[in-house]
Design a protein around this nucleic acid. Sequence first.
DNA 1: TGCTATAATGAGAATGGTTATCACTCCTAG
DNA 2: CTAGGAGTGATAACCATTCTCATTATAGCA
Lengths: 144, 144
Amino acid sequence: MTNVDRQIERRLAEQEIRYTQGRRSVVAALAVAEGPLTASDLLATLKGDVPLSSLYRTLAIFEEVGVVTPHLSTRGLARYELSEWLTGHHHHLVCVECGFVEDVEAPKTEEDQVRNLVNAIASMASFSATNHALEIEGRCVRCA
Amino acid sequence: MTNVDRQIERRLAEQEIRYTQGRRSVVAALAVAEGPLTASDLLATLKGDVPLSSLYRTLAIFEEVGVVTPHLSTRGLARYELSEWLTGHHHHLVCVECGFVEDVEAPKTEEDQVRNLVNAIASMASFSATNHALEIEGRCVRCA
DNA sequence: TGCTATAATGAGAATGGTTATCACTCCTAG
DNA sequence: CTAGGAGTGATAACCATTCTCATTATAGCA
């Protein structure tokens, strides 16, 4: 059992939500991915272990308790990944060609600058920022 | 006829696409909005002037020729706005409470810094960045 | 070790935003 | 004036996601 597993187990236990085998499989699949996955990605990865309806229910519950974060970047398709408190804050490189999304962590200095800019920009519009997402569009190595 | 209208007219003419009355109405509605609109927002704004199927076709064509840019931030709903070459580069303040999205322009200094950071981060992953979107999540004035 | 309440499962139906179809209409160039 | 391509709009189809509900598994307790 990994560290992330333990954290999720605790978080779920707080709300009397069970961490069943199927749910563990979903977490495992998300944990090894190098970017957010769609429901069908997960369905394929889990090859029948978790039926469609259960997968969606699991994702909905995980989202509700903050274990996963959905991203809606690609046309009508949600991509899910483990939330940042589990994996660390990061940004996305979105390939405009193939739609692939890759996670990338910014070095501390850069990240601090981004955070400062976000706060500066938000406060100009009297908006209280709780989080930010920097989506970088371009071409991935394969599509370059 | 506004300046934006003229630019769109030219862009469409290049591809033998007609800039009809219905399409002008859609552009007009998008032009006065203070943030990206959903298809049903547009449908309501245009009050029957543009039927659903025509609206979606228009949006699809506009997207293809780069006149509008879709954003998929809110659950299963696409929001459309005029592309940045028509309105200027900007970022989004997304209200996590009500889903409302507001456009915001960053001052030149801040924008330059963001661009530099984006390039720095992208190049670390040998990704060639063509654009970036900084989505700031928080609470809007109404939901604060 | 049983019991029982509650959560989870999974197959199938329903939902709803978006797309595709197609007959008809409107422009526009020749 | 006319032909052909572009646009329109009502309707049907699509498809990711959500809901329903009968069944099954699980944790806490006696």
